[in-house]
Design a protein around this nucleic acid. Structure first.
Lengths: 197, 197, 197, 197
DNA sequence: CATGAATGAGGCTTCATTCAT
DNA sequence: GATGAATGAAGCCTCATTCAT
């Protein structure tokens, strides 16, 4: 494996990453082949191994990349908002947009459970950790009702993932306005401090 | 492929099904091999093809079987309950127990998305259809608030799936009481007719 | 890898062993390919892996087999002789005949040094151990002069190996009578009890 | 391929030769890679092919180099001695020291049999030729008994090689004094003119 | 009914070598 | 002189599936 030093090397590597994203995303990890990836990237077979150790290592790298980018995207969008419910809504919507834009990467993340369980746990625990911290802070501030945080966190993640599957993966679009509307209600109901007071 | 007629044939077939459930569930579809399945079943390699067309066809059969059994289990448990929220709670709990008892089958269902997308959609649409119908009825009866059913259905399925992953697959247990407690609250908040009225 | 149970399986395995012996012996370990071996054996590629774990494992098995057979051949031939020098002469000649008959195996043993050093040491230490013991006994009996056994053992092994190379591998024959004659003299001179007394 | 003309070119070439000696010697011909050699030499990959035609050609060059140097070393050490047995003893010891100092080169020579049989024969025939000539002269002078020269020559080469393997390659040292002592005796016994007269 | 022997397409990976800069 | 990017032939190995017994 080589760490590219020239501009050309960097470009080739990038072409491979993009090709891999596409091929993994459409074919799935197992059906994807290195030959196909290099064909899509327009480089020779050997070139793949100049830049990556193996099919699996590239796959994992893509998942880690996705994790990083997604968290960054959400953090950026949520940054200025002080209202917790608004943050949630924006976070969900950012997630859907991100998943749609990087549909292939999103698929890869979902599949990684069946390629490397370790990696999958890492991904979800990382997401959950961030979420948990945010939620705790919001509860402390009184923006969110006091609750069993662990369950709420995974419930919200589950909603995001299933709606992402339902709309982004199946329908190839962001959830429609009425769904987002309802989602807002659901979030508010789950988190709002004054349950029925 | 042969449809078993003798008792012995039935038994052999069943041994293969159970072995496949175990092997697919622990190794995953791709890592699983026919040889391993037959070894676990304690039959000769050739015997597999006496009863099943292919590796994939058996896998699909398992998913369909799981779908059937799960729906039946929930239906049975929920049967006598008239309160919709109680039905939900019991349905979720039945699901967790079922997933734990048939952990391998549950894993198989999750993975089938990456083996045969068609099948996966079938599975979820079937689940969602039932759910949707039930929810509509409950809304009509005023047991559940009026809502955008599609979104609510998938949100609830997402919660079930993610909590199943969190507790059954990762911790190898049913969610603990406090989680179930919180889950009840979440369900009630999502569905309860008088939002904050 | 399969342990053959049927007669047919045994035969196939044997065909592969013989093909491997030939191909390894003529091409050398690295130049030899599995495809070539299976072609020579007249079986499909996959069949190789039904009977052997890998190219290397078969190679090693051949070396171990050769070690066993050679020692057995020499032991058999030397069995009835009481005169130590005669034993040596017969042992050498048996070795040359064995090497000629199993020329390919002999080559394989020589090459194994560069495939698996561990195995090579095992082979030579095993040979040397037997030799050493025999020599010690002969010295105790006064049939061989008192000497630094280690050095004498390896010197004799070296002579055998180099003459084997010179005549068997290069000339494809057992050393000619005059060489064997001279060899007897050399052995006698090295071992004879009355140095120059 | 380029014949270096500048000082810098000479130095680069030399660095490659030394790196190759090390890598071939420790990894063996087949396991050695050009990339590794250039890495050890601290030059770019392409540079290798500026100075050598191929992996094999460099390997062969090293063998030839070794042959030359070894013969020169022995000739130098033996030069002043008139006693043939002393010459032998010194020749053997020179060989062991040389093999130890150039252990990697020594390994390479042993391996070359499996890379290029032609070359190996050339090496041994060259060694044997010199030896044979020397021995004939010594016999003519009466310093060595009349014998079947061919056999004696290869026997002595065999002893040298096996003891080299035993001590230099395995123990990473020159044979210990007692071994050298015994070796002297063996040589004397093999060559001494008055066998038991 | 049962089975194990046989198969070969297909995938991953390595590495000597070329070549443009 | 020097280099690293690119290449693809070639090799090892797996495993779903077929089939004769």
């Amino acid at each position: 494996m080589r760490e590219p030093v020239t501009e050309r090397g960097m470009a080739t590597r990038q072409r491979l990453v993009e090709a891999a994203e596409q091929v993994f995303g459409t074919e799935g990890f197992h059906a994807a082949t290195i030959v196909e990836i290099t064909r899509v990237a327009g480089v020779g077979l050997g070139t793949f191994y100049e830049y990556f150790d193996s099919k699996e290592s590239l796959f994992k790298a893509l998942v880690r990349h996705m994790s990083h980018e997604l968290r960054r995207a959400i953090a950026t969008e949520v940054a200025g908002l002080s209202d917790r419910l608004a943050q949630e809504r924006v976070g969900f919507e950012t997630f859907f947009r991100f998943a749609l834009r990087h549909k292939n990467l999103y698929r890869i993340v979902l599949e990684c459970q069946f390629v490397d369980e370790e990696l999958y746990r890492w991904y979800y625990q990382r997401l959950a950790d961030g979420y948990r911290r945010g939620l705790r802070a919001a509860i402390a501030q009184g923006q969110v009702r006091s609750c069993e945080v662990e369950t709420v966190v995974y419930a919200l993640l589950g909603i995001a993932q299933m709606l992402g599957m339902r709309w982004v993966l199946c329908e190839n679009r962001v959830p429609p306005p009425e769904a987002l509307e309802e989602l807002s209600v659901i979030i508010a109901r789950i988190l709002a401090p004054e349950p029925k007071a």
